[in-house]
Write a protein that binds this DNA or RNA. Structure first.
Length: 479
RNA sequence: GCCCCCAUCGUCCAGCGGUCUAGGACGCCGGCCUUUCAAGCCGGUAACACGGGUUCGAAUCCCGUUGGGGGCACCA
C-alpha cells in the first residue's frame, strides 16, 4: 500500500523551522515510496489562528519546494482539509463514542478540576483527571442539564504498545493517561480528537511528527481503534534547539523559516541543511542533491538525538549553493535585491554591468543579502567612506601621490578594459616600487568607499572611466 | 512530583561486537595562494558522560547513576 502522510500545522504562528523539517521528512518519505503528501490545517483554535499565519505556512512549504498532493488549496477526495470546517464530523464521532460507552459525560467544572489538580500535585499524585464522572450511570448523565465535557474512557488497566519507526518499541501504561477531554463543554473538539479523527478519515498510514507528541500517542491510537480504523504507524522526530541548547528563539537563531529566507538563504540550502539535521544519506556526504535524498530517505535511519540548529553551518552551506548556481540564475535571484537596496530599477546598461561583476560576487557571498552591499558602489553617484577603512588606508605616507598617479594614468588610458587598467596600474606600482597592497588599497578605498570590495580592476572597468576619475579626484581634494 | 525519550569532537552526522591508535562536515587555529575580502588548497585542534555487568573481545548489548529534553490542560 502506498503511504499517505501529512503535515498538520496550526496557523497560530509563522512557519517554524522545526515544522519545516518535519514537513520535509514527511515529503521525502512520501516521494521515496511513491506515496501521498497531504497538508491539512489544524485550525480548531480560532482565537489564535490567523489568515496571515496560514498563508505564511503554505508560502514557506512552497518556498522549500514541498509540493503536496492533497490538502489545503489543492483539494482532494477528503475535502475539506481544514478542521474548522469539519466540526460536525468530530461531534459525530464523539457522540458515537458516547453511545458505545467509549466516552462519557463529565460534569466537573474547570474550577473544580483546577483545584483538584493543584491538590494532587501537592500530594504528589498524578495531576490528571481522576475519572470520577465515569461512575455516573449513562442514563443519569444523559438526563442532566448542566454543562458537560466529553471524556474518552481510557481502558484500564491497560497498556498501549507501538513500534515507533524511529524510536523502536514504546510502551505506555494507561495508568499514566487520564480520561482526556475530546469535546469541550461548548461542543468544540480538542486537538486529540480532531487530529485523530482526521488521520483515520484521511486514511493516513504514517504519522511523522515531533517528539513533543510522543506521550500523547496512546490517546491517538486509542481513538483510532475506537473508530475501528486501521493501525497507523508513528515516527517521532527529536526536537530542534537553539545554539544554547535551549528552545530555538528569536534571540538564538530564529524560529521562523521566513527569517532565513529574508536573510538570503537559498531554499535548496535550507532543505539540504534541514535534511541532514537528524538524518544521513549513508555515506559521509554533506552536500546532498534533492534527488539523492528522495532516493535514499529512510525513517529508520533518522537520528533519535535532539539537534541543535547551527546557523553557521547553514550559512556555509548556503555559500556552496550560491557558488553552484548558474550565472543567469544567480543574477535573476540577485537583481531584485539590488534594486530594492538602491530604491530604484536598474536600466538595461546597468543590468549588463551587474551581470558583468556578478560572478565575482557569487564567488564570495554566503548570503544573497550580501550582494547589494557589495555592488552598491557601482550604482550610486557618491560613495560614503567607511571611517575605519579610511583611517587605515588613506592616512599613510605617499597616498596622495598614488592617487594622483593613478588619476594621470587612468585619464590617458586608451581603452577602458580590465586588462588595460591592470596593466597601467601595475606599471605604476613598479615605477613607484610599491607593493600591491600599498599601491592598490588607496585606490580601492577611493573608488568603493571601503577596504573590502570585489576585485579592483574589474570593479574599475564596471564603474566606468568617468566615475572612477571623479572619485579619485574627489579623494585627492579631500586628502 | 509522576511518566516518557535521549546521551560519539563546541555543533551536525558516520559507527549498528573485533577492521576504532573512532571517520566526514561546520566552526576554530596555522600555512599556501593573493590587489582587499572571500573562495580554493594543505595541515592541526577536538568526542565514545560516569559506574557496573554480559562477552575471548565493547563506542556498539543489559542495568544503574548523572545530565539534557519532552509530556502530564475543556492549548495545539
Amino acid at each position: 500500500m502506498k503511504p499517505r502522510v501529512r503535515i498538520a500545522p496550526s496557523p497560530t504562528g509563522f512557519l517554524h523551522v522545526g515544522v519545516g523539517r518535519t514537513a520535509l521528512y514527511n515529503w521525502l518519505f512520501a516521494r521515496r515510496h511513491g506515496g501521498t503528501f497531504i497538508v491539512r490545517s489544524d485550525d480548531t483554535d480560532l482565537e489564535r489562528s490567523s489568515d496571515e499565519y496560514a498563508e505564511d505556512i503554505l508560502e514557506g512549504l512552497r518556498w522549500l519546494g514541498l509540493d503536496w498532493d492533497e490538502g489545503v488549496e489543492v483539494g482532494g477526495p477528503h475535502e475539506p482539509y481544514r478542521q474548522s470546517l469539519r466540526l460536525d464530523r468530530y461531534r459525530e464521532v464523539a457522540e458515537g463514542f458516547l453511545g458505545e460507552g467509549k466516552a462519557y459525560r463529565c460534569f466537573c467544572t474547570p474550577a473544580e478540576l483546577e483545584k483538584r489538580r493543584e491538590a494532587a500535585m501537592a500530594e504528589g499524585r498524578p495531576p490528571g483527571y481522576d475519572g470520577r464522572c465515569r461512575a455516573i450511570p449513562a442514563e443519569e448523565a444523559a438526563a442532566r442539564t448542566d454543562p458537560f465535557s466529553t471524556r474518552f474512557a481510557v481502558p484500564r488497566p491497560g497498556e498501549t504498545v507501538f513500534a515507533d519507526l524511529v524510536r523502536g518499541e514504546v510502551r505506555i501504561d494507561h495508568g499514566n493517561i487520564d480520561d482526556f477531554v475530546i469535546l469541550r463543554s461548548d461542543g468544540s473538539p480538542t486537538y486529540q480528537l480532531a487530529s485523530s479523527v482526521d488521520d483515520v478519515d484521511f486514511e493516513i498510514t504514517h504519522v511523522v511528527r515531533g517528539e513533543d507528541l510522543l506521550s500523547s500517542t496512546p490517546k491517538h491510537i486509542l481513538i483510532g481503534e475506537a473508530m475501528g480504523g486501521p493501525p497507523i504507524a508513528y515516527a517521532h522526530l527529536s526536537l530542534l534547539f537553539g545554539p544554547d541548547g535551549k528552545k530555538l528563539s528569536k534571540r538564538h537563531g530564529d524560529t521562523a523559516l521566513r527569517a532565513y529566507r529574508e536573510r538570503g538563504i537559498l531554499p535548496e540550502a535550507m532543505v539540504n541543511y534541514l535534511a541532514l539535521l537528524g538524518w544521513s544519506p549513508g555515506e559521509d556526504e554533506t552536500i546532498v542533491p534533492r534527488q539523492v535524498m528522495q532516493d535514499r530517505f529512510d525513517l529508520g535511519a533518522v537520528s533519535r538525538n535532539p539537534a541543535i540548529f547551527d546557523a553557521a553551518k547553514l550559512e556555509w552551506m548556503n555559500g556552496v549553493y550560491i557558488r553552484n548556481l548558474e550565472a543567469a540564475d544567480f543574477l535573476e535571484r540577485t537583481l531584485p535585491l539590488v534594486e530594492e537596496d538602491l530604491g530604484r530599477e536598474l536600466d538595461g546598461a546597468e543590468v549588463a554591468r551587474l551581470a558583468g561583476v556578478a560572478p565575482l560576487i557569487q564567488e564570495r557571498a554566503r548570503l544573497l543579502t550580501e550582494v547589494p552591499e557589495q555592488v552598491r558602489f557601482l550604482f550610486v553617484d557618491e560613495v560614503p567612506y567607511d571611517e575605519a577603512s579610511w583611517n587605515k588606508v588613506m592616512k599613510t605616507e605617499g597616498v596622495g601621490e598614488v592617487i594622483a598617479s593613478a588619476l594621470d594614468r587612468l585619464t590617458v588610458l586608451p581603452e577602458w578594459t580590465t586588462a588595460a587598467i591592470e596593466e597601467t596600474l601595475r606599471a605604476m606600482l613598479e615605477e613607484k616600487e610599491l607593493s600591491a597592497r600599498k599601491g592598490l588599497q588607496p585606490i580601492r578605498v577611493a573608488v568603493s568607499g571601503s577596504s573590502v570590495s570585489p576585485p579592483l580592476f574589474e570593479s574599475l572597468e564596471s564603474l566606468g572611466r568617468t566615475r572612477t576619475l571623479a572619485r579619485l579626484a574627489g579623494v585627492a581634494a579631500r586628502l
